[in-house]
Design a protein around this nucleic acid. Sequence first.
DNA 1: GCTAAATACATTGTATGCAATTTAATTGTG
DNA 2: CACAATTAAATTGCATACAATGTATTTAGC
Lengths: 146, 146
Amino acid sequence: MRDTDRLKLENQLCFPIYACSREIIKAYHPYLQKLNLTYTQYIVMMVLWDRSSIGVKELGELLYLDSGTLTPLLKKMEAKGYLQRARSAVDERCVLVSLTEAGRLLQQEAVDVPKCMGCKVALNESEAAALYGLLYKVLAHLQEEK
Amino acid sequence: MRDTDRLKLENQLCFPIYACSREIIKAYHPYLQKLNLTYTQYIVMMVLWDRSSIGVKELGELLYLDSGTLTPLLKKMEAKGYLQRARSAVDERCVLVSLTEAGRLLQQEAVDVPKCMGCKVALNESEAAALYGLLYKVLAHLQEEK
DNA sequence: GCTAAATACATTGTATGCAATTTAATTGTG
DNA sequence: CACAATTAAATTGCATACAATGTATTTAGC
């Protein structure tokens, strides 16, 4: 392939990843709007529904987000009443995020979201597994490079 | 799988797509910075290197971006001198974007970017093709739903 | 040819996302 | 213990994204 051909959109792997990400997030919008959540807030809630409580640093590592994104995001979610933020007594540098009762109750309203979204993605189980595996391979390699 | 298990991050397909998209774009940063381009500006340039000239509407369809994103983006790129914007004489509603000489010259500085990025992605040819195919299948299905 | 509907952009407001820097707290070392 | 280096968040500044709305232009239907 010629070098200039590599610069075409149709020969790029990143572009469909980028486009797919945004299109899926757009498709989430009607469901998440009912829960008063954005997509980023939704994935924070997923962690908290699983863990109840987590430090900002570890949350950032799980979600690949830094404090510049998380700090204002978590403050907004605290204002909505879904979580609480508190400095650790052991290490005052760390902030611990924990699920509130209102946040816990929200999980029940969210249980149908994955099923609704699963239909929109149009992949069967083996395709989904293949896609999942390839994406995590890319993610893992990008981390190593750092 | 239990409904609440589907709400876990590790059972989500969207999350690795979203994370991968952002991590790859981050990896582009050092290369694109040298060209004075952001990732979004880079994919606009890729279209223009291929087409020289395109309407905003078609550009938005290619990139899955709307005028709310494109209008300010294209104005910034015009200010940098990489492209020109002009109302169509035939249909005053339409804006035509065209590559300038400076924009054309930029392509030569960008030829190495895809190769540099290819290394970072860590997939062989067949894996890349599989990932590509799966992503476009998802994208196509999401468009049908609309 | 008049006007309602459609179209193409532009604008507004809100929410990320991230690089770069700053601040406060803790740790490692001599 | 003093203090330089490290670490965890917070802050700042800039650049998207996108829903919702507004505006100018064109098209369709009569």
